[in-house]
Design a protein around this nucleic acid. Structure first.
Lengths: 208, 208
DNA sequence: TGACAAGAACCGACCGGCCGGTACAGTAAA
DNA sequence: TTTACTGTACCGGCCGGTCGGTTCTTGTCA
């Protein structure tokens, strides 16, 4: 097995353990066991716990960022492009469709990214700095849209709020409300199920 | 000093330490030191770490819940009452006004509540169960508003998303954007600065 | 082709420190 | 006398980190 494969395997195992048994169980020993690797093997790829956590964050963060940015680039309609990309990437239209065509991220990756971010913030404030930079850039670009910037930001915030709810157990993916919220948000930014540039029935002119 | 005063002192100290040095530094020894109490003193009031964490969560949660519910009860205008209450309680109009008239919560309490919730979720999933119950009840009541339920929920979610952003360092209270977001949200639910039942210039009919 | 050196990838026993928790004797106030 | 602590000493476990060693892979050269 190549080095990169093992690294990925470790990152995924770390999140799997954290998701199942809580963030505190993301110890070197547990992660090693979960990944089917020895502790020394983990330490070989990530010389310290901090580097493991930031490595995990980077691993998931890159996947999310790539997907979101590509969706924006592919979207012909500039209006609400940012928020629409986030929604289609982070909310699969229906919980059951595991599309492998690369048009959306699997819940595992999305939740993993979230968990990794919280894990980083918990372990040491310095670890989220790279993520912070990415977030700030994204924020700035989104807000540079003169008309709809703030409105899109609110959609983004709502999505993140939903993650927080999930984290503290206030909502679960399989609840009907979860899909309802996704539908309302999607409607707000004109993201139909399969027609990205579709016109929403709901969102009237909200701004100004 | 009475027992309850000491309990409060310990709870506040726990959050102070966590906010300053990270969640992991919320150890029994550190909390005791921060509170100016011996470790035995902490263990006297909270027989275990779990009980300390859930006690802290309860301490801050009660303050937030009380304030939010009272605001709702005092509001003569039923439309968007829930979301409006949250906003006025959790977003002070301007960062500098420390009103002691009890019309809003201090940022310390709000952030403390947030930190406590995350701390509980991190330490052990079971600890947030009481908070979960409160949240679910609140959610249900809010959604029972047939017209504006989901719209208010989005405001709530955005507020929580903003907390998450704060936690991972994506935004700070003193940034102009923070106040801007507050203003937009307040406008959406018709919460003017000092006229709770005011009509917003922005939020048109969004629903249906 | 095959022997072999060299480094990359990985193993797992071990260590020191910290953390949650216990035990208990003492004390000041109500 | 009860309540509300203080202070100290201690324990067992876990966790991050170290280290000497092993196995796998790859390039080199006769």
């Amino acid at each position: 097995m190549s080095a990169n494969e093992t690294r990925s395997k470790i990152c995924e195992a770390a999140i799997r353990a954290a998701a199942r048994d809580g963030l505190l169980s993301m110890t070197l020993d547990n992660v090693a066991k979960e990944a089917g690797v020895s502790k020394g093997g983990v330490m070989y790829h990530f010389p310290s716990k901090d580097e493991l956590v930031s490595g995990v964050l980077e691993y998931f963060g890159n996947q999310v960022e790539q997907m979101v940015l590509q969706r924006i680039a592919d979207d012909p309609n500039p209006r609400f492009r940012w928020a629409r990309s986030m929604l289609t990437c982070l909310f699969p239209d229906s919980p059951s469709d595991n599309k492998t065509d690369g048009s959306a991220l699997s819940p595992e990756i999305v939740d993993g990214f979230m968990l990794a971010a919280i894990a980083a913030a918990v372990n040491s404030p310095g670890l989220i700095e790279p993520l912070r930079q990415v977030g700030l850039r994204l924020r700035q670009r989104l807000l540079s849209d003169p008309e709809d910037g703030l409105e899109q930001l609110l959609v983004w915030l709502a999505v993140d709020g939903l993650f927080l709810w999930q984290f503290v157990g206030l909502i679960r993916r399989d609840e009907p409300l979860y899909a309802e919220i996704g539908a309302v948000l999607r409607a707000k930014v004109g993201a139909a199920s399969n027609v990205p540039s579709g016109r929403s029935a709901i969102s009237g002119e909200v701004q100004r």
